[in-house]
């Protein structure tokens, strides 16, 4: 039977944990807002790039590019983006579960770990890891996505990888983060139909404008494709970051609530115990007084 003092100690400890959770939630909320703003700010570029690539792709249908060549996928590379830190609910484990499932589809897989959690997970299992990118920080810069993209592009061109996939957590809403797998290489140019539809809605006749390309359509394509890949990675990083922060916010919110419940329960138990003690003492006194008479 725990003594009163044990209860008090317990409550005090839970209270300080609650305070930490609360502070962490506030921090995550602020960071989430920033991460979300970054995702939104990056959208126009992604959209424009997508559109332009669709149009350039249509104009250069017969042009080959090493990033477009489709090979039989013997060696497949996965870029897995997780957080550097934990304490964000099921965020990392959901993502790594998806990654594990994906990886089992192929015989020969290489991994690129982004984030400490992914690195540790793969290292622990002894999986073949070609690169790791750790400690990207809170504010993702484009160069960071670029660096990762360049790494896989190079390996793709030399034929070391036959396909590259990106696994990241899509920021659907504050409550929902969806582990998502997208194909990075070979680049599948944005489908014409999609582009054409949009163009038709806007201006039916403008779907097939003739462009002047400088220096040439091919050169522009060669320039655009790596950009597209880089931007995809960058986008994945941003989404991941926003997801991580919102997952952490939700986890910390739940933790704060749980701590509150725990404190309530403990207080109740403690009061009951105290009451019991008082009753017992009273009985003793009454009993003692009765014995004297």
């Amino acid at each position: 039977m725990p003594a009163l003092r044990d209860f008090r100690r317990r409550i005090k400890s839970v209270k300080s944990t609650q305070k930490i959770c609360k502070a962490m939630k506030a921090v995550a909320t602020a960071k989430m807002a920033r991460a979300q703003a970054a995702v939104v700010a990056a959208r126009p570029y992604a959209r424009q790039l997508h559109e332009v690539l669709g149009r350039v792709g249509a104009a250069t249908r017969d042009v080959g590019n090493p990033l477009l060549t489709v090979r039989e996928p013997k060696k497949v590379c996965y870029i897995v983006i997780t957080a550097d830190r934990g304490l964000c609910g099921g965020f990392n484990s959901n993502l790594l579960r998806t990654a594990t499932r994906e990886v089992q589809k192929w015989d020969d897989v290489s991994l690129v770990a982004v984030g400490r959690k992914a690195r540790n997970f793969f290292r622990f299992r002894g999986w073949n890891m070609d690169a790791e990118f750790i400690g990207l920080g809170e504010n993702i810069r484009f160069e960071q996505g670029q660096e990762i993209a360049r790494f896989v592009i190079e390996k793709y061109i030399t034929g070391e990888y036959d396909a590259v996939y990106l696994i990241y957590s899509k920021f659907v809403s504050v409550l929902v983060q969806q582990p998502t797998v997208t194909k990075l290489l070979p680049v599948e140019p944005p489908s014409d139909e999609e582009g054409a539809e949009q163009a038709e809605e806007a201006a039916p006749k403008k779907a097939s404008v003739e462009y002047i390309f400088e220096p040439s359509a091919e050169a522009v394509l060669n320039y655009l494709l790596p950009k597209y890949v880089e931007n995809s990675v960058y986008h994945g990083l941003l989404e991941s970051k926003a997801s991580e922060q919102s997952a952490r916010m939700m986890a910390m919110d739940a933790a704060t609530k749980n701590a509150g419940e725990m404190i309530e329960r403990l207080t109740l138990q403690m009061n009951r115990l105290r009451q019991e003690g008082i009753t017992k003492e009273l009985l003793d006194i009454v009993g003692g007084a009765a014995a004297l008479e």
């Binding site: 332009v52 149009r55 390309f213 400088e214 220096p215 522009v220």
Partner: peptide, 19 residues
């Protein structure tokens, strides 16, 4: 500054993509 040299774009320019 385009790859092929300086260029200026006025309204109603013909469609163009340049690096």
């Amino acid at each position: 500054r385009g790859t092929m040299g300086e260029l200026g774009i006025l309204p109603q320019h013909t469609p163009l993509i340049t690096s």
